[in-house]
């Protein structure tokens, strides 16, 4: 199971990548592995606003459903439309093509509350 360096992580198994004008959010390799083959993805509307830890979407495998929780407050700038027809991208490339949403963060300091790659690796070790 890979944990990618340079990202922020939440205990709900989401990762956050800082880009110049937004944050990109997805689920971790650990999360996709636990869920199994993802068959359906429900994503929010662009412009929708969320508070930290709000549920913003749903990932479904054949026999399990998992809510996704936003690790930082903010407004949705873009959702990964590719996933609607190709949910397997999350399994195949969780840190890349399997990203879920791009967010305009309300408060950058919330990033500091998240885990580092190292801390997250430790966290899933314990799970």
């Amino acid at each position: 199971m890979s944990v990618k360096d340079g990202l922020y992580y939440s205990e709900d198994h989401e990762w956050v990548r800082e880009e110049e004008d937004c944050l990109v959010i997805g689920v971790t390799d650990f999360a996709q592995e636990e869920l199994g083959d993802i068959v359906f993805v429900e994503l929010p509307e662009v412009e929708e606003e969320f508070e930290k830890n709000d549920g913003f979407g749903v990932l479904e495998s054949v026999k399990a459903v998992s809510d996704t929780f936003i690790p930082v407050s903010g407004k949705i700038l873009e959702v990964n439309e590719n996933l609607i027809d190709n949910p397997e991208l999350i399994n195949d490339d969780p840190y890349g093509e399997g990203w879920l949403i791009k967010v305009d963060p309300a408060d950058d300091s919330e990033l500091d509350e998240l885990l580092s790659a190292e801390e997250y690796a430790e966290f899933i070790e314990e799970e």
Binding site: S61, V62, K63, A64, V65
Partner: peptide
């Protein structure tokens, strides 16, 4: 498409 159903989704 069983994730719509009660044995998986329960109250939802």
């Amino acid at each position: 498409l069983q994730t719509r159903e009660q044995h998986i989704r329960r109250e939802k």
